[in-house]
Simulated assay, not measured.
Amino acid sequence: MEVFMDIVEFLKPKFVLMENVVDILKFAEGFLGRFALSRLVRMNYQSRLGIMAAGCYGLPQFRLRVFLWGALSSEVLPQFPLPTHIVLVRGGAPVKFEENVVAYNENQCLQLDKALLLGDAISDLPMVENDEKRDELPYGKSPKTYFQYSIRLSAQDLMDPSCDPKKAKLHNTLFDHRPLQLNEDDYLRVCRVPVKKVPDYAMSFIKGKSPKPFGRLWWDETVPTVVTRAEPHNQIILHPEQNRVLTVRENARLQGFPDYYKLCGPIKERYIQVGNAVALPVSRALGFALGRAFQAKVGADPVLTLPTNFPHFGNAAGEATN
């Protein structure tokens, strides 16, 4: 973090946006978060810290992350975009930073979109085996949900906020739908994990103790967060019905990567690229907030409400893109 701030001090950009895990606010009573804020203020930046959950912006994973805005005194400090979706809470912010969580007030009457579940995101993808090696596959199925229509848009249509995903021509080649191949021992263990919900099910593997090895995800639930390592020994990352871990593409969808986006490198590196990324709907919402600040079209509030049906908001597209 100190190196990041040194780079900011050297470049002196008009705007700064930093992202990190919530643990930076848990270590030493939030020392790292306070350090980042103080460095920006010392460099004559306005600053604002917010905690955002990816699931609040239309993804089936919770993924709580810390974001820090900075803006020179000559600029307008960007706001944080308020949630567009209900979210199934899978964790919380440190008590001392609860006021920094980007959320509506509890007494507000809202009509947010329903929470997305795992099935909403990946149920249209074809079955693959543990040893799948192909980097390109046909879909074999039509999209079933609005999320699946949107994620299968072409690059051109995805950039058009007036596009109706259900009427657009969809991307026709599926990239990166292959899992990290498990070794024989792990694969045999996975094959024994039930494909139906069993309360508190876990398979022990080290001295008979482990809280959640070889656990399945479920269609009607959300994922706590996408991880960088597809290892079933200490994370619940098994497909609900197939005997394998989630594929690179399935993880990419949970992060909001469009299907036309093709990853590169060895299979493990692709998982890392996806797991380390900022969730795309969150990035898009923050980008919208930055654009409004750059145009000086913001108020004094630290938060803003995104357009209805963001990012595909029809008649409001002209105002948002001009």
Rank of each mutant, 00 (worst) to 15 (best):
M5N: 14
V8H: 15
V21K: 10
V21H: 02
K26N: 09
E29I: 12
G30R: 07
G33A: 14
R34L: 13
F35D: 15
L37I: 13
V41D: 09
R42G: 15
Y45N: 10
S47N: 15
P60Q: 02
P60R: 07
F62D: 00
R65A: 08
F80M: 02
L82W: 07
L88P: 09
V95M: 11
N107P: 04
D113L: 14
L117K: 05
D120K: 01
D131S: 13
D135A: 10
E136G: 05
L137R: 01
L137G: 06
S142A: 06
F147D: 01
F147Q: 05
L153R: 05
D157H: 06
K169F: 08
K169Q: 15
F175V: 09
H177T: 10
D185T: 13
K196G: 12
V198L: 04
M203T: 13
F205H: 14
K207G: 10
P211M: 06
W218L: 14
W219G: 02
E221F: 11
A230G: 02
H233W: 08
Q235I: 14
Q242I: 10
R253W: 02
R270Q: 09
Y271R: 10
I272P: 08
A279Y: 01
A279N: 05
R292D: 04
V298W: 03
G299L: 10
P302A: 14
F310M: 07
F313H: 12
N315M: 11
G318H: 00
A320K: 06
T321A: 11
N322G: 07
